[in-house]
């Protein structure tokens, strides 16, 4: 088997801007390894070619922001705003993430093996997010499209003011937000959840999950909602 050449970037000696510039100019199919991130912000933002990047260590805020293509793995934890506005491709975090994971994401897949902080999937617009552990409060706030899968528990006010998007939770939900309700699991939901879990490399049984989504009562203005 051919061993593909891998470019190593050591953030102990290379500024993040140089790393990101190199990743933006990378050849499709190239492989990259990033060492010593030491909690740096904005690591590997704006990747727009089909490349594979592994970051060895914990990253700070906004890692993998605007991820457009390719596969990025962070072997560690990530701070606030992981993969914010992701468009497509895959971002995998082996540890846990802070708040606003996948905020406003339009597409692609985010996999967090650990847990996330508050506001996971806030304003998500089509991204799929699979979390191995728990998610914090106000997750999927104003979610518009996409799927959020939680293999642990969800915090308070899940799916508050949700437009669309489907939420699957295996554990407990501390409370549902405004206009978010439990919905029946039909065959198509079991099938899409099975696909998402498989894509995330997980072996959880889709039958153990419950589905939540929008009651669609906030779509239109009602005069009785005035104060």
């Amino acid at each position: 088997m051919d061993v593909l050449e891998e470019t190593v970037v050591d953030l102990a000696s290379t500024p993040v801007r140089e790393l990101n510039k190199a990743l933006h100019e990378a050849e499709p199919g190239s492989r990259w390894r990033v060492e010593n991130p030491r909690g740096a912000h904005n690591v590997a933002v704006g990747i727009h070619e089909d490349i594979r990047v592994t970051v060895e260590g914990h990253v700070g805020y906004f890692a993998a922001g605007m991820h457009q293509k390719g596969w990025l793995e962070i072997v560690g934890n990530a701070g606030t705003g992981l993969a914010e506005n992701i468009m497509s491709g895959t971002v995998h975090v082996t540890g846990s993430t802070s708040q606003s994971t996948g905020a406003t994401g339009h597409g692609g897949l985010i996999v967090v093996d650990g847990s996330t902080g508050a506001r996971c999937g806030i304003a998500m617009k089509g991204v799929d997010i699979v979390v191995g552990g728990d998610i914090g409060h106000m997750s999927a706030f104003m979610a518009q499209a996409g799927r959020l899968v939680v293999c642990g528990d969800a915090g308070e006010a899940l799916g508050d003011s949700i437009y669309e998007a489907r939420i699957y939770v295996k554990g407990t939900v501390a409370s549902l937000g405004a206009d978010c309700i439990e919905k029946p699991m039909r065959d198509e939901h079991l099938a899409e959840l099975g696909d998402l879990l498989a894509a995330a490399g997980r072996s959880d049984d889709p039958a153990d999950f419950r589905r939540y989504g929008s009651a669609r009562t906030l779509y239109h203005f009602h005069s009785h909602n005035t104060y």
């Binding site: 030491r38 909690g39 912000h41 914990h58 700070g60 701070g79």
Partner: peptide, 16 residues
């Protein structure tokens, strides 16, 4: 932020 903790001795094995 985590970066302020990154230089502490034994951070690799810390509970974070």
């Amino acid at each position: 932020e985590y970066r302020a903790l990154a230089g502490l001795p034994g951070i690799e094995d810390a509970r974070i």
